[in-house]
Design a protein around this nucleic acid. Structure first.
Lengths: 138, 138
DNA sequence: CGGAATCCCCAGCGATACTG
DNA sequence: CAGTATCGCTGGGGATTCCG
């Protein structure tokens, strides 16, 4: 049996258990574009087209889906201005701003350490064909 | 043109550009099991079997893959003890410990806010069939 | 402009069986 | 115990087309 550290649970929440609702939240946070969308909206509200241009490589479909998922989760607010042509502005809810800080920290971490990681991967791949010197010497 | 905020870049890194190496890092961070694996290893080094039992629902294949990806990126250290039966212990590298703090914060955030998000989703789904009252009234 | 709808593919992931 | 190897799927995600 595992002695789950009670200190780190919140009202029965435990992401290490498969059917805990926090797993769904983690799945959302780890979907492909969430980090960048939340980070972009952390700066200021943005319209759909501006977001699409800022997130280089995203498709309209994925941007729409990501924004819907975030809106459904209560993290993003969607406001439609009935102009012609229509304007749709996305912004973070209070809950979303809280998460945005975290997500943006992840982006920053990725940017700060990308070179270290790239080099580590090259070293790892270079060692691929090497003979095993000793079983416990890695 | 977009005036990219230079303040938030590190040596030309910009995760909003599609072929920036930090995108690869973000992809790793957002892979399905990375957050939980890093969080578990943040507590203490763990053997393969212990990790598998702790991460409810993970398969051997995915745990192996996730650990390999993290090891390759220089975030996880793998030590093999040539006993019979063999023992393999995984731990975080210094770089990995740095990331572990962030990943665990994401897990905690998910646990803390899972109820809010579940309720927001139910409200959103309940509104699904409702008529549109006014175009700008959302 | 901001989508929705459709088609399609492949890689992420699961399930199972086998091994040193 | 800690893995590989193989098969198979499904759904995440891309590309394209159409619409109010």
């Amino acid at each position: 049996m595992y002695t789950t550290p009670e200190l780190r649970e919140y009202g029965g929440a435990n992401a290490y258990l498969r059917n805990c609702a926090s797993r769904d939240v983690l799945d959302l946070l780890s979907s492909k574009w969430v980090c960048l969308v939340m980070g972009a909206l952390s700066d200021s509200p943005m319209r759909f087209g501006a977001l699409r241009r800022r997130l280089d490589g995203i498709t309209q479909k994925m941007l729409t889906r990501t924004l819907r998922d975030l809106e459904r989760a209560g993290l993003v607010d969607r406001r439609v201005f009935p102009t012609t042509p229509p304007q749709v502005e996305y912004s973070l809810t209070p809950l979303g701003r809280d998460l945005g800080v975290l997500m943006d920290a992840c982006r920053v971490w990725a940017e700060e350490h990308m070179d270290e990681i790239t080099e580590a991967r090259e070293r790892y791949d270079a060692r691929a064909g090497e003979p095993v010197r000793a079983l416990d010497a890695r």
